[in-house]
């Protein structure tokens, strides 16, 4: 475990099942050997809701929560049950800015399969954890990876997301080791 970094915060934005938050925290600890901390829930600001699109604007949410006092945490993952969008795309599973402090994970589209049937709980949890680890990669400055067998490969839909492994390729892992310097002394890959 990496003791030199501040923990990664996992914060529910609105009502989110605790099991999802725990699954994400376990994934970060298991795959990245980074400490995590579950934070108190936060209310979703109403102005982030777009009446026309009937979705929440991921950019506005990031701006709103970036101003939270996050000094105690290296990075923070905000988890929401609502549907997210960015202006150019119809929806996003998650959103983060390269090298930013906060990322978002939307559970809205992860609960169902492409054919509309409900996804089994283990698959739903796996999807949420993958999106969280992917967005966390962006917070540590990783870009999308060309390797389709890498968690940082872009997932255009649920089918892509389900195909993606829950781990980073060796190239992205190396990059992460550089991005989290103290990890280099205690390699976890």
């Amino acid at each position: 475990m990496n003791a030199t970094l501040k923990p990664i915060g996992v914060v529910p934005l609105g009502e989110v099942p605790e099991i999802v938050l725990k699954s994400i925290a376990a994934g970060i600890l298991g795959y990245l050997k980074l400490n995590t901390e579950l934070l108190e829930p936060q209310r979703i600001p109403e102005n982030a809701y777009d009446l026309v699109r009937q979705q929440y604007d991921a950019g506005l949410l990031l701006n709103a929560f970036e101003s939270l006092a996050l000094e105690k945490h290296e990075k923070v993952i905000g988890v929401l049950a609502v549907d997210l969008f960015v202006p150019i795309l119809t929806y996003v599973f998650g959103e983060a800015r390269q090298g930013g402090r906060l990322s978002l994970v939307s559970l809205h589209r992860l609960r169902k399969n492409s054919d509309g049937s409900p996804a089994p709980l283990p698959l739903f949890l796996e999807r949420a954890t993958k999106v969280a680890l992917h967005e966390l990669g962006h917070l540590f400055n990783l870009i999308h990876c060309e390797d389709s067998h890498c968690l940082m490969h872009f997932s255009g839909g649920l089918r892509d997301l389900d195909k993606a492994p829950p781990y980073y390729c060796s190239y992205c892992s190396l990059y992460l080791r550089d991005a989290i310097p103290s990890n280099a002394k205690n390699p976890w890959i």
């Binding site: 202006p87 150019i88 795309l89 962006h138 870009i143 872009f154």
Partner: peptide, 17 residues
């Protein structure tokens, strides 16, 4: 001409490297 669209694209393509 819409800044919000430009920024959305910028963030998106920066993630693609």
């Amino acid at each position: 001409d819409e800044m919000i669209v430009r920024e959305s694209f910028l963030h998106w393509f920066k993630k693609l490297g």
